[in-house]
Amino acid sequence: MSAETLTEPLLQATDVHKSYGRTAALDGAALTVRAGEVVAVMGPSGSGKSTLLHCLAGIVRADSGQVRYRGRDLTTMSDRERSALRRTDFGFVFQFGQLVPELTCLENVAIPLRLAGTRRRDAEARAGAWLERLEVGDVAGQRPGEVSGGQGQRVAVARALVAGPRVVFADEPTGALDSLNGERVMRLLTEAAHDTGAAVVLVTHEARVAAYSDREIVVRDGKSRDTERVS
């Protein structure tokens, strides 16, 4: 695949170490994400998948190693810079409990835009369009407590994509859903990401979910192996 090797990696982690107290959550993990691709991160429970995702997204700072995003090293950036980066370039979907219960679904989706300074009216108009696109336009006015788990996840996906991120990080986005709903969320997520050109880093332990990826990497005992093969 000569085309791929020519593409400059969007996000590249090398030899990342991260410890919590005496637990080494990451012990030399590496990962490369290219623009527009969907990478699944797999591995047994407790192997450090979520930690890797947090390091890649600049939510936590790696103890050592490099996390380069478009030529800049996240590990040397200040908290402020990383926050700004997450605001403008990244989107997030988690397993559950990520929507602000007091806000309506529409307002929840509008948050990233409003954090970036978009006016409320415009932000909510764009949020509405994304809800339609993810087939949850009808719950726009409801609060997260009043919608189903699958609908809630699709709202969360809309929120992750609304600000036009270059990378969407998803940690077990279907973990709390049945297979039909889970696949629906995955289909919508990957289609939308493909349309907008966003890359997706997808942590999951479900093979059928990982099957929506272009490529997977396996994390074991804090070490990751990129199975991207030269074939």
């Binding site: 939510i59 997450r86 605001r87 409990g97 990233p112 954090l115 929120r159």
Partner: peptide, 13 residues
């Protein structure tokens, strides 16, 4: 707690 962490992940100051 969880909600705060998610908002921070989204880059909330």
């Amino acid at each position: 707690k969880k909600l705060l962490a998610v908002l921070v992940a989204f880059g909330t100051r």
